[in-house]
């Protein structure tokens, strides 16, 4: 199995899907001539031409709406946002148009579109460029929210997202683009709505997604040295949430920590905790704890930024707490 970066895994998914289905096209800022702000679309303009790899003006609302309009009449656009920070300019299009068209039209008009780009913090990009917005979109019925953590999942989930008949918010990780991993060639499709046990363990479940998967795996390694077997459950899809997998894992371990990059208030973890306390109450030996980004705009200073982010030490501390190991 070849080893690819996360970036190239996405590139392969796009290339394969565009080759498979002539209705699939890519649109966004710098996706063509520039080869992609993060080089995800490298080579696609040459291969598919300017009608299918469309450079847009810096006009997020506008091209998101263009993509939705094209999807309403049957095309399958992949709309790239240079980052999800900029996509806030387009959130009206996603929430009021993409998410609601099928319902408002009683099933007559769907929006089979993918909106993708990197989310979350990178390094020292400061407050306006370091934000995790998955809970914003996951709040909205009608949208699906997908967040791959590994190169293999990046490819398999993007192929599923493009083939899905619903609008899919596909949030990548800027810090993940260089992550390497084995990726199956050709038809590798990961279904939406299915979480994945990235590491099995019997003492505690660490629920995570996107960048926090790597953080959780590192924490699990250190905990193993200490005799604690942590199970790392990667949600992969935020909406629809794989509650079955979460509950099954908690039923095995009886303790749970939820790690996410975003802010704590009304975050994805809050939804996971709600599900657990409601449906696995009698399985719990301790309250479920959350590890989140600090409840502040992201600071620029390197030390402050580090303090604001989720890291393995914070996850380990939470695991100790739910194991009553103080």
């Amino acid at each position: 199995m070849p080893t690819l970066t996360y970036r190239d895994a996405l590139n392969h998914a796009l290339r394969e899907e565009m080759a498979r289905d002539p209705d699939v096209f890519l649109m966004g800022e710098e996706v063509g001539v520039y080869q992609g702000a993060y080089k995800v679309s490298r080579g696609l303009l040459d291969e598919f031409g300017p009608m299918r790899v469309v450079d847009t003006p810096i006009t997020e609302l506008g091209f998101a709406g263009v993509g939705i309009g094209a999807a309403m009449v049957g095309l399958r656009p992949v709309i790239e946002f240079m980052t999800w920070n900029f996509a806030l300019l387009a959130i009206d299009q996603l929430v009021n148009n993409a998410a609601k068209m099928r319902y408002m039209s009683n099933g007559q008009v769907g929006v089979p579109a993918v909106f993708r780009g990197p989310g979350g913090a990178a390094l020292q990009l400061a407050a306006q460029h370091s934000q995790a917005f998955e809970s914003f979109y996951a709040h909205v019925p009608g949208l699906k929210v997908v967040m791959p953590a590994t190169p293999a999942d990046a490819k398999g989930l993007l192929k599923s997202a493009i083939r899905d008949d619903n609008p899919v918010v596909f949030i990548e990780g800027e810090m993940l683009y260089n992550l390497k991993g084995e990726v199956p060639e050709g038809e590798h499709v990961v279904p939406l709505g299915k979480a994945d046990v990235k590491r099995a363990g019997r003492d505690v479940t660490i629920v995570c997604h996107s960048k926090t998967v790597a953080v959780a795996l590192k924490a699990a390694d250190e905990l193993a040295d200490d005799g604690v077997e942590a199970e790392v459950l990667d949600l992969r899809t935020i909406r629809p949430l794989d509650t079955e997998a979460v509950l099954a894992s908690v039923a095995r371990t009886h303790r749970c920590v939820v790690a996410e990059e975003g802010w704590p208030f009304a975050g994805v973890g809050a939804q996971v905790v709600d599900t657990i306390q409601r449906e696995a109450f009698d399985e719990l030996d301790a309250p479920v704890l959350r590890v989140t980004g600090a409840d502040v705009p992201m600071p620029y200073n390197k030390q402050l930024e580090k303090a604001a982010k989720v890291d393995p030490a914070k996850v380990i501390a939470a695991v100790h707490s739910v194991l009553y190991r103080d």
């Binding site: 506008g62 091209f63 939705i68 309403m72 299009q93 148009n97």
Partner: peptide, 16 residues
Amino acid sequence: AGHIPLATGMAFAIKY
């Protein structure tokens, strides 16, 4: 005004 880009997208699909 939220639907003006939608019509533009439909026109894009026609051209496509």
